[in-house]
Design a protein around this nucleic acid. Structure first.
Lengths: 191, 191, 191, 191
DNA sequence: TATGAATGAGCCTTCATTCAT
DNA sequence: GATGAATGAAGGCTCATTCAT
């Protein structure tokens, strides 16, 4: 594995473990098994890591989503699977998501957030388009905008259950059902 | 003004301007016009500020919401006004909201987040209950849960437009309309 | 009790508990039950406490010595009792003794050390004089000097056993016997 | 010279000049001609210096003692030379000795004091053993214990004259004579 | 490329001392 | 005399970054 990937992965691991503020470059290089100075051969500064990590995270998220949502499933099932996937990511990476967001926010890289999220937005957008074309959902929506709303909604729903070490499966299931029902009505899904 | 308020307000100002990581106690005390040591008379550490600031922010938000949403308006109008209010807060305080969230996350105070948001959740919850009692919205929802979903949805919608210094009024109006329409369908509002 | 005594006693207590470096004026005034500013009505600075405390300690030591050494005992017995007394003080106040010494040393008050110890030296000196007059000890000594040597010897002997939380009674008894034997020979005690 | 030695020597110099409490890491690094951060590459804290310095001091003392006490001298002469050596060290390093002691005391390193002094104790102990074997001193002593008493006695005698910037040579000579005479009798030296 | 010892600015925090009440 | 909130200088320590090897 290239040194750059080594650094990124070590950083993700350290950030998840210690949080951003408490993770130092020393920690990262130690975890990556490289020398202090080597870090700066690949990244001009500690903050320059953030966009790369963010990208990595979104990529991973999209990967999980694609794995979870089955091609041949019905739209309703796909929505359910999508919610499952987003909850899964939130459960496992919830802290880091907030932290990266803050990390980007504290730099001038914030504007890249949109770019980074773009592929995810597009994928959802595409999903909606198909459903609209099939007449499964109401046709009065701006689908790009709705894709973003959808992600915002489901992610915040997931955070609400996972933010507090909530491993109560019943609670999680209820939250998923509520958000799905909310979503179905919002999209005007024809059952 | 008491020294404590002085500190809290100065801190909010500095956090908004510089972000959390880059704001130091030195900055805060300078902005507050007090001595370095005085800070520690009121807060044991920089992080101890977070819950207090968070509370302040939610309080302010709720205040604005209550001011904006008119008692005698119809439910639909109330929803519109609510969205207006949340967008307003997001526009003016959007950075700090994310930062406080991150700030709480990086401490052990995260669990207080729920507590801090509680009055806001309750207010929305109450609004929904009235609407349900009046038969204006569908009756198949858990209203507490839905209140949280609603806030999550609208806040994330607002962030999406304001996070990037987006002052394009047309864009903002469209986003509001989209989220309102989404919301109306989700709640099953009977027009 | 006067405020001054209150301060001195509180300070001794805190120093014993926390050591000199870690004891702050706040600790002392809290323990004394007085206000922060009141301290400075009685002492110009924190260091000005040291000579007063030192005096107090020597006074207490001399008190214990006088209580322990019996008027009507033989010289040999008196020496034994003296060693007992010094060991007793060392056991109970050993840390503070070193700390006061360091405290005096780190100020310009060091020269007062002699003055403070003077009554103790005199008392021993007097004891030796009586013994010399009675022909019990060798007559070739300078008794003032010898008094100081004696105290130095016994105090360091005591420190050696107590410095390390040594509560082993057998060890203590042996050390006392050794130092007494050493002392008897040094003084040329005629049994 | 290695950075570590640089630090240790600078620290000894500063401690001698200013005392322990008043010596800061800033002072030390300035005197050592290195950067502030470099200090912490070698010592985790200021107090961690103490055991190292203590060791250095005892080493130096033992060195001087070994230089001063001549192999082929008689036991009486050796004792005289030993007293000379200890007085010499006390004159030049007296403050620091007390301060290190206090420094160790104020840390959890106090227990190392014995270890650090051990080589010195042993050396004296050995000296006494030879004398006992040669029948020069009384045979009723525990020599390990006596070695410690001897050092305690002579060191405190030396402190008594040097603690107060006493450079009066006559006074010093008299003190040496008194302590030697005291010692000869204590050990039962056969002239 | 890679190293890691060295740097030093700057952070958080403490605490002796002051002073208006 | 007594108070205790306020002060601010100064300390210990961290850590992103550099640079000679």
């Amino acid at each position: 594995m290239g040194k750059k990937e080594l650094i990124v992965h070590a950083a993700i691991g350290e950030f998840r473990e210690k949080g951003i503020e408490k993770t130092t470059v020393s920690h990262i290089v130690k975890a990556a098994g490289i020398a202090q100075g080597t870090f700066y051969l690949y990244f001009p500064s500690k903050l320059a890591l953030m966009p790369v990590i963010a990208e990595e995270m979104v990529e991973k998220t999209l990967e999980i989503v694609k794995e979870t949502v089955q091609e041949q499933a019905s739209f309703q099932e796909k929505l359910e699977q999508l919610v499952d996937a987003i909850f899964l990511v939130a459960r496992d990476f919830n802290e880091i998501q907030a932290l990266i967001y803050a990390g980007l926010a504290s730099t001038e890289h914030l504007k890249e957030w949109e770019t980074v999220y773009a592929p995810f937005y597009e994928w959802i957008s595409h999903l909606l388009k198909e459903a609209e074309a099939a007449g499964i959902i109401r046709s009065t929506m701006n689908l790009e905008r709705t894709a973003k709303l959808l992600i915002g909604l489901v992610e915040s729903a997931a955070e609400q259950v996972y933010l507090y070490d909530n491993t109560d499966e019943v609670e999680v299931r209820r939250q998923k059902e509520e958000v799905l029902s909310f979503l179905f009505h919002a999209l005007g899904v024809k059952l």
